[in-house]
Design a protein around this nucleic acid. Structure first.
Length: 484
DNA sequence: CCTGGAGTTGTCCTA
DNA sequence: TTAGGACAACTCCAG
């Protein structure tokens, strides 16, 4: 049998077979070797957080099984492993879909060079975003810093959202070359924690490509038709819940956008438009990360470098554990820890609470979310935290400080969400559920709750902490004027 | 270069 | 009870 030279498909954040440009390109060249590399070395501090690792474990398992066990799994420094693997296998080319995290861009550039030195062709493809960050620019060639003009311009010039995704290729396991590794290769990555908390966490999720497709179907039939109004209510399932699937590339964003566009044409125009805007926010975050890679570490608005953040580990621990005494905040933080996700509306409320009422640096929140979210995504997470903190490019005006009690009354009126995650106060009547610290003693007694014992007293006064944040902001701005 | 209009998701006070 | 305006001013962007 003549030995043909294989093409390598390097799976990264694109753990799918459908609408996968790198895979299609590789298959056109002949037999394919599929490989994944867990590269914590180059990722450094940005290696997957604990929740993401659990997700990745299952996603790799399902990918491997849909490849008939033919996924090679390597662990270590990809700048060494990929060229080495390609050379060993006698490959002529390596294909992958682009990623945009600063550390990956640097690393992938090096790998491309190393492969070139070996005479191996390296090709990157666009499989992660609707619009490449360098394609959506202002007329003067610089990147957008405001979402709406970014979105309008992208829709006008790059209407990817209304173009059907690449034809689905009917892959068969026989398209892929055998993997000569032992069967426990994925387990040996030790992505799952020793304790079994991840089992409960993933109860409500199905990582992997098939799960992603199912989720999209469900959303199109249910949530999307109520998206515009329903997406604000955390007790409802009117959001897509596609974020972890999109993060790991188990489904292509083009397929999602295309499906939403079709739905728009079937009479759900307004609903779909709002959903497409959310997808576009993801694009915008990636654009910001690409053009301003420091966004994941530093304030985009430099004046915030002078902001008088407070540094109180005890307050942060209360926030992390869902023990702030504000039920909507605590429900969100407990949902996060238990399920690896948090409803979008509640992410804003909990983030605003940490950054404004507790006046802790947004990076503390960003890091906690990074570790706890199954959809932890560098671009989305960093940009969103900066948006809430007010330090981002297109941030919320600083005086917009969420009031957790008001938000709770508005978006979880009957307390369904709160009761789900804070059973110890479930017996409180809805009127007092949103702010137990202000409930009369008799009401608390009747519900069998002793504040400070069964559930914490509020750890800050909302009015005072709001005023404090506002005056800190003004002080920062005045210092700035003074300095310049 | 100038100019006008606009900018994800809110809160609080007042009438 | 509810609706409207103030909040603060700046930067960004398109024409």
């Amino acid at each position: 049998m003549p030995k043909s030279s294989p093409t390598i498909l390097w799976f990264r954040q694109d753990l799918r077979l459908r609408d996968n440009p790198a895979l299609s390109a590789a298959l056109e060249q002949g037999a394919v070797l599929a490989v994944f590399v867990l590269d914590d070395k180059n990722a450094g501090e940005r290696r997957h957080g604990a929740a993401s690792r659990c997700w990745l474990h299952h996603s790799l398992k399902t990918l491997d099984s849909s490849l008939g066990g033919k996924l090679w799994v390597l662990e270590g420094d990809a700048t060494e492993l990929i060229p080495q693997f390609a050379a060993e296998q006698g490959a002529t080319a390596v294909h992958w879909n682009r990623c945009y995290e600063p550390w990956r861009i640097t690393r992938d550039g090096r790998i491309k060079q190393a492969l070139a030195t070996l005479g191996i062709n390296a090709e990157s493809h666009s499989g992660t975003l609707l619009w490449e960050p360098w394609q959506v620019l202002k007329s003067d060639g610089t990147p957008y810093k405001v979402f709406t003009p970014f979105y309008r311009h992208a829709l006008k010039t790059q209407p990817a959202a209304v173009v059907a995704p690449a034809t689905v290729i009917d892959h068969r396991a026989s398209d892929f070359l055998a993997c000569k590794q032992d069967r426990n290769k994925i387990d040996s990555l030790a992505l799952l924690p020793v304790s079994i908390w991840h089992k409960a966490m993933l109860e409500d999720w199905t990582p992997g490509e098939a799960g992603a497709q199912m989720r999209l179907e469900e959303f199109l039939e249910g949530g999307l038709t109520d998206y515009r109004e329903g997406r604000d209510f955390p007790a409802r399932r009117s959001v897509s819940r596609l974020s972890p699937h999109l993060h790991f590339g188990e489904i292509s964003v083009k397929q999602v956008a295309y499906a939403a566009t079709l739905s728009a044409q079937q009479g759900h125009e307004s609903q779909s438009e709002h959903f497409l805007r959310e997808l576009a926010w993801r694009e915008f975050s990636y654009s910001l990360l690409y053009h301003f890679p420091a966004v994941c570490e530093k304030n985009l608005k430099q004046e915030f470098d002078h902001f008088p953040w407070r540094d109180d580990p005890e307050l942060r621990i209360a926030w992390q554990r869902g023990m702030t005494g504000y039920p909507i905040v605590d429900a969100g933080m407990r949902e996060l820890y238990a399920t690896g996700t948090m409803h979008n509306r509640v992410r804003m409320i909990t983030a605003s609470f940490l950054v404004k009422n507790l006046m802790q640096h947004w990076r503390h929140g960003e890091q906690w979310f990074w570790d706890c979210l199954v959809d932890a995504d560098l671009a989305n997470n960093s940009c969103s935290w900066q948006w809430v903190a007010g330090s981002g490019a297109d941030a919320a005006p600083y005086f917009r400080i969420f009031n957790p009690v008001t938000q709770s009354q508005k978006f979880d009126k009957d307390g369904e969400y709160i009761r789900r995650f804070i059973p110890e106060i479930a017996a409180l009547p809805s009127k007092f559920l949103h702010d137990p610290s202000s409930a009369p003693e008799t009401v608390l007694q009747q519900a069998g709750i002793s504040l400070g014992v069964d559930y914490p007293r509020a750890i800050v006064d909302l009015k005072q902490s709001r005023e404090r944040a506002l005056s800190a902001y003004h002080a920062m701005r005045n210092t700035e004027d003074w300095a310049s």
